[in-house]
Design a binder for these strands. Structure first.
Lengths: 255, 255
DNA sequence: TTGCTCAACTTGTTGGTACAAGCTGTTGCG
DNA sequence: CGCAACAGCTTGTACCAACAAGTTGAGCAA
């Protein structure tokens, strides 16, 4: 029973009340000065405790408004279904999923050519710094930023399939377009990781402190050759990826 | 070009230097008082900036020692291989993976019976608060905490397969033991999520601020019935999950 | 009623001070 | 030589003060 610093006692007490649902009616927490009086601590000390809870992702703060318990609503991503689908750069799966969930999808899209980032060059087995085409999606659900998706194609593939480098949608989907040109995607290599967002990611996804991002990197292969690398960043607080494996089709519509 | 607060300017400048590799030799950062002089800011302001970088997972701090750039070493988890494996409660896959990577595996293990947590009860389709058997692993790599794995079995399954509730390993593996008793696992439902660790998780995994956890929840089915629910928490800074899908076997030994 | 101003609240930023606590190398005693 | 004590560095905790900036509702004027 070692003595904890006061700011940790504040954080622990508030955390206990939060998980016990003490603030479930209106999710507002007492103000810093109220807490300061209640815990007989200075405003700075209370702020340290609250900052801890913010960095744990338990609460948020807004200037002028106060602190709020963060809501826990998550959006399910059926990732295994993507396996059997021509991976749609025009966002078919995303549109369908979001609409089915009763939400409103919205996305912006752009195409550019640029030197491949190192982690992309490694996966595409091309020279570090060599050119690649980036097709980039910024996706929203109910006007809330949801994910960013960056798909890189190596330059050699563009020579054979020039429409990839043109701005605008490819109506039939990029996978079908590539297949029609003899490039068939036979498998994926998926990597899933998590970390705190970079400032750039925090800006695009409008996440505050205490919210990690979920990184999904899918490298698609045609024969031995990697033909594309898709890096998707999801808000960690609002997304969960699901995989169904084995004879389970349709058994898990709940949760 | 809106004016940023001074502590953000400090954080931005240091972040830029860190990603450019300015501290790559010894990973030590200048001390707070040095930075205070360099940026013409008070120690408190510099500390705010550094706290930001800590919460981004970019640096760590230790009392008496200073701030260090966090190392980026990650450990690859081949998750798709788990699909075709009797899921070993005795840690066969873990032991093999870690040993093959030239690391030293170590784990502690315990068994207990307790009321199922709500999220487990939901997945096992049992009454909230009803009893379940928990088989719990705490895994280390080179004496560093790596993951915790909690597998819950519903009480009805224990009546048919009592050894699950006994402490100690089941040598042939729980999946084989269950299969021998007529309970065959035909599929999984995987969920992958991320969030900041609870204080309990931070203690078990010895992670500091700015490191999220990767949550892997696997529900195993025998026919319609869920027979177990495994919740694994990984340190987000040291782990990455890989799935190989399609005709790719063995093509990705690098990275 | 409508719309504006402003007071009164909220958190955010920046400065200051003091001391506690952890680490390391030096010093000097035995 | 061996080792304990200490000085001098580091970050951690806790307090105080003042002002900036965002939000809301009261209240007044048109």
């Amino acid at each position: 029973m070692s003595k904890q610093p006061k700011y940790r006692q504040v954080a622990d007490a508030l955390r206990r009340e939060i998980v016990n649902g003490a603030f479930d009616r209106d999710r507002r927490l007492p103000s810093e000065s109220e807490l300061s009086a209640r815990f007989d601590a200075s405003r700075n000390t209370v702020r340290s405790g609250l900052a801890l809870l913010v960095s744990e992702g338990l609460i948020t703060s807004s200037q002028g408004l106060g602190y709020e318990v963060r809501s826990q609503e998550v959006f399910e991503l059926n990732a295994s279904r993507f396996e059997n689908l021509e991976f749609p750069q025009n966002g078919d799966a995303y549109n369908t999923d979001v609409t089915n969930a009763g939400r409103r999808p919205h996305q912006t899209f752009r195409v550019e050519m640029l030197p491949a980032p190192e982690e992309v060059a490694d996966r595409l087995k091309i020279e570090k710094g060599s050119k690649a085409v980036l097709r980039f999606c910024h996706r929203y659900v109910d006007d809330m930023p949801w994910s960013t998706q960056a798909t890189y194609y190596p330059a050699w593939l563009i020579e054979e399939s020039p429409r990839l480098a043109e701005p605008g949608d490819i109506e039939e989907g990029t996978t079908r377009y590539l297949a029609a040109r003899g490039i068939e995607q036979i498998g994926y290599f998926d990597e899933i990781a998590t970390r705190m967002p970079t400032p750039e990611e925090a800006r695009l996804l409008e996440v505050g402190a205490g919210v990690p991002v979920l990184l999904w990197t899918r490298t698609g292969y045609s024969g031995d050759r990697p033909i594309r690398c898709t890096i998707t960043t999801f808000r960690g607080d609002l997304n969960r990826m699901n995989y169904e494996i084995g004879e389970l089709a349709g058994r898990n519509e709940n949760t």
